[in-house]
Amino acid sequence: MRTIRVVSRRSQLAMAQTKWTIERLRAAVPAWEFEIVPIVTQGDRIQNVPLSEVGGKGLFVSEVEQAIAQDHGDMTVHSLKDVPADLLPGLVLAGYPERVEPRDALVSRQNLRLADLPQHARIGTSSLRRAAQLRAKRPDLEIVSIRGNIDTRLQKLELDGLDGVILAAAGLVRMGWDDRISELLAPDICLPAVGQGVLGIECRATDADLIEVLQAITHEPTRTAVLAERTFLGRLEGGCQVPIAGYAQVLPTGAVSMTGLVATEDGRRVLRAHAEREDAVSAGQVVADDLLARGAAEIVAQG
């Protein structure tokens, strides 16, 4: 008998993801109990400033990690796209349930696709990565920076007079709001963030029993794809201040297909690379090194 304390942000999506994960863990270890420890992070408190100006996505992660490191909780469930390449020392990502939809979604007021939006349409997003790729495809669009939880950003579609917003499709799917999606953006239009659509479960590296259970609910192709993507991100030493995207898939042959992207914020320079390798680490490294050799290092340094 053991009680696992699961640290979670208070947002609707974070709670939904945490409860979904707890259901899987209860099925795996019926003798264990689980309790949720709610937390409000700095990223939740600061809503009126773009993430890239106040420390990046790590604002959602660092306080949660500190709670686990200081034994105020045992594990947490992240949207993996929010987790920086480097974890707090002593912690480990030990569980990866099967990835859901990795693509970005356009939710538009008139249910229009991206190509059909009128000239100079106003599109809301909280992501430099999305903004840069949208500017590259549709330079006429007016990109409006929006913050807030997924439900808040959907409300801003009407309240702020936007023509559309771009969100991770996975969040809409997990909330049961996928009927709001006007278009799933193909990766050649908007390559996803590293880890997008994946839940990453983090715990202390010394918690062998919990790690064993988390590995039991891990989907191996997802874990392999994530390893390639996060290797790519770590090689670039990238964070939230530069538009970086990366998406890997495990092919039927077992090889790993990896695509990566680095762009300037204005979308005028977009570097993209692709590789297929037999192992995930090599796939991530090769794509990152290709981009670095072609000028990505300069772009990342400017961020």
Score class of each variant (00 low, 15 high):
residue 28 A to T: 10
residue 12 Q to M: 10
residue 17 Q to I: 08
residue 150 I to S: 13
residue 229 E to F: 00
residue 259 T to I: 09
residue 135 R to W: 03
residue 168 A to T: 12
residue 200 G to D: 05
residue 127 S to V: 07
residue 123 I to G: 00
residue 252 P to I: 05
residue 88 L to R: 08
residue 226 V to N: 06
residue 38 P to K: 10
residue 249 Q to E: 13
residue 211 I to L: 08
residue 209 D to V: 10
residue 181 I to G: 05
residue 99 R to C: 03
residue 30 P to D: 10
residue 261 L to C: 05
residue 53 E to F: 00
residue 7 V to R: 00
residue 160 D to M: 13
residue 39 I to V: 15
residue 45 R to A: 12
residue 215 Q to K: 14
residue 287 V to C: 07
residue 100 V to E: 06
residue 156 K to M: 15
residue 114 L to W: 00
residue 254 G to T: 05
residue 185 L to H: 12
residue 35 E to H: 12
residue 14 A to P: 01
residue 93 L to K: 02
residue 227 L to D: 06
residue 34 F to T: 01
residue 273 A to F: 00
residue 156 K to R: 15
residue 12 Q to A: 14
residue 119 Q to R: 14
residue 288 A to F: 08
residue 281 V to M: 09
residue 208 A to Q: 15
residue 81 K to E: 15
residue 186 A to S: 09
residue 66 Q to P: 00
residue 97 P to C: 05
residue 263 A to F: 00
residue 287 V to R: 03
residue 278 E to G: 11
residue 160 D to P: 00
residue 183 E to Y: 13
residue 36 I to D: 04
residue 98 E to Q: 15
residue 17 Q to A: 11
residue 76 T to G: 02
residue 78 H to N: 01
residue 239 G to R: 13
residue 56 G to C: 15
residue 185 L to K: 13
residue 282 S to M: 11
residue 94 A to F: 08
residue 110 Q to W: 09
residue 150 I to Q: 15
residue 303 G to Y: 00
